[in-house]
Design a protein around this nucleic acid. Structure first.
Lengths: 154, 154
DNA sequence: GCGCCTGCCCGAATAGTGTTCGGCGTCAAC
DNA sequence: GTTGACGCCGAACACTATTCGGGCAGGCGC
């Protein structure tokens, strides 16, 4: 993971579809060198995949929210089961098992506030292991698509 | 946004680097047709970009957490300023302005628990507009990279 | 210092791909 | 039935990915 690898990772986070030649030219190396580096980054698991970023509105998902959930009992079995069940739902974008008062953070995206309400009372309240939940509608968000390596002297 | 567009979007969410020919072959259309569709999806803003998914561990980011923050006063100026300041920090992955008890949800990724602590006391506590905050360390997470269009009869 | 080995990078060659463009079929309107 | 518009197709050409043999530098043993 030298300087060249970092640069490749940065560039591909920014635009995963640029040609290998363009990438090589930007970094000042030969295309064959660049290709080999990318292949190794893949093999080492550094690059996990390439994904298109889609406008949620185009997928009829105008409303996004975080739902934090407390489970009872918070045992391994219950947590794993709940995680799998949530992840299988099409409205669910991401599931986070967290430390704190709440056990789960579930990121959902739905067509409308009505759909969010339906989701909460049909999919969440239904489940007996849900002790309590709290939903936070997302008014505005900003996500980074490119993360740089951090150094310990941070 | 017909069936073919949806299929293209689904495929490119799954693997943004597959060749246009492979994509066309999967969907049973000519490469030229497929290319034109992709171009239009871009132009319409449906496809916002293509990004490599990188293992956080490779970027020296072993610890991830959500930090929920309450601001005082929660005015537009304060919110916008805080959002911009957080987003500029390298440890911050995403910023969400949310409804509820807390005003902000900040997703951070850092090398260690120490680094998280440093971030909280150096970058967050420092700011006068931060009335209170609560951090939730992420034990486990699962994110979807492909989202399907939702229909109103959901 | 000298020679050897290893690892990395390069450039050329080939196979495969992106991209353009003229033409054709289908459908709807009139 | 005729016309126009739209979208899809396939061939052609330029460009790109990918492979592979060779060369260069750095490190190590002697």
């Amino acid at each position: 993971m030298d300087e060249l690898d970092s640069a490749i990772v940065r560039e591909l986070q920014q635009d995963a579809r640029q040609t290998n030649r363009a990438l090589a030219h930007k970094l000042g190396v030969a295309p064959s060198t660049c290709l080999e580096r990318v292949r190794l980054l893949h093999q080492r698991g550094v690059i996990r995949g390439y994904h298109a970023d889609i406008d949620p509105a185009a997928l009829n998902r105008e409303v996004e929210a975080f739902v934090s959930v407390q489970l009872r009992p918070p045992s391994r079995q219950v947590i794993e089961g709940f995680k799998a069940a949530m992840f299988a739902l099409p409205q669910v974008q991401a599931v986070y098992v967290v430390a704190g008062e709440q056990d789960f953070l579930v990121q959902v995206s739905v067509p409308s506030l009505d759909a969010l309400h339906s989701f909460l009372i049909d999919r969440l309240t239904q489940r007996r292991e849900v002790a309590s939940f709290r939903s936070q509608i997302i008014y505005d968000s900003a996500r980074k698509h490119v993360a740089a390596p951090l150094e310990p002297p941070q």
